[in-house]
């Protein structure tokens, strides 16, 4: 497909575009523009600020005046959510799941995407159609039999219950993404390496893969976000609290402490924090990755 080339923020554009704007009513337009932008800024940020400030409040304070600042910085809500609320465990599990699934998806998608883009392969189209099917059908299509399959091969009580299908079901996306990137590379580079006596693995690993780093980064970001927030798959496949990722653990935490609102706010804050912080630090990577992931498959 035709793709847009430059993701947002790829180029530094000066504060004002070089091309001029019409003058008439520019000031009025500018004011309206900022009013709208600021209104949306409030809509998008207020829920965050409210929850974060509530994490320092008692349940009574939350009910009394939701807009007030906390009367004191009470860290005990966060502390209790972390230990008693088991967020230490949930976060650690999510790290394990994300590491394993992202690594698996990236490795297998790079290999297969590369082969489907650049290596001679019989019945390439049939294979592509098969993977395309996986891109089009939702998780529900396989959810029920997959549960019984995982049960029968005794994976349900391990981390694998989420890792294995977590990788398998995301391969179509990864493969199409990586195939797109590899197809954008000049095949002459590979041919030149082959003439120099490199074997196919060396060609892939030393020549072509380094050139696909932007694609790799996109896949990592996309897959990380997807896995960190995935809900239905662990809901069905992960039955033990010690194995729950944070997305799912948050729900059960909420059920256990519904009446303790300060604790809930603290738990939700902890659940948000790692990925929000990561986003704030790596903002451009996130946005570029998400944009490219959307536009290139």
């Amino acid at each position: 497909m035709a793709t847009t080339s430059a993701p947002a923020g790829a180029k530094r554009v000066p504060g004002r575009a070089a091309w001029s704007r019409p003058r008439g009513g520019a000031v009025g337009v500018g004011v309206v523009r900022y009013l709208v932008l600021i209104a949306f800024l409030v809509v998008f940020l207020l829920p965050f600020l409210w929850i974060w400030s509530s994490a320092f409040k008692t349940s009574i304070e939350i009910a009394r005046d939701p807009f007030a600042l906390p009367s004191a910085l009470r860290w005990e809500n966060l502390q209790r959510a972390w230990t008693v609320g088991r967020f230490d465990r949930y976060i650690w599990n999510s790290v394990i799941y994300c590491t394993a699934i992202v690594a698996g998806v990236v490795a297998l998608s790079c290999l297969a995407g590369y082969a489907l883009a650049l290596l001679p392969l019989p019945r390439r189209n049939a294979i592509l159609v098969l993977f395309l099917l996986g891109l089009m059908v939702p998780f529900q299509s396989v959810m029920i039999p997959l549960y019984y399959l995982l049960r029968d091969i005794h994976l349900l009580e391990t981390y694998w219950a989420f890792i294995v299908p977590g990788i398998a079901l995301r391969l179509p996306f990864g493969i199409f993404l990586m195939r797109g990137f590899f197809r954008g590379l000049p095949p002459e580079l590979a041919d030149a390496a082959r003439l120099d006596g490199a074997n196919e693995w060396a060609v892939f690993r030393q020549v072509m893969l380094p050139l696909a780093t932007p694609g790799l980064a996109t896949l990592v970001v996309f897959q990380f976000m997807f896995t960190w927030n995935q809900f239905l798959m662990p809901l069905v496949f992960v039955q033990r609290d010690e194995l729950r990722p944070v997305s799912l653990g948050t729900m059960f935490f909420f059920g256990r402490y519904t009446a303790d609102r300060g604790m809930i706010a603290a738990g939700v804050t902890i659940a948000m924090l790692p990925v929000v912080l990561l986003y704030l630090v790596l903002q451009r990577r996130f946005i570029e990755g998400i944009t490219a992931g959307a536009l290139k498959t």
């Binding site: 394993a100 690594a103 698996g104 391990t158 890792i163 074997n199 196919e200 194995l243």
Partner: peptide
Amino acid sequence: MFRSTSPLTTVTFALLLALLGAAPQIA
């Protein structure tokens, strides 16, 4: 010539196994 085991996938699965060592002991 092309070798059949790819170091990349080997590394991945070694990593997975290492991570799963951290899993709670069930049996």
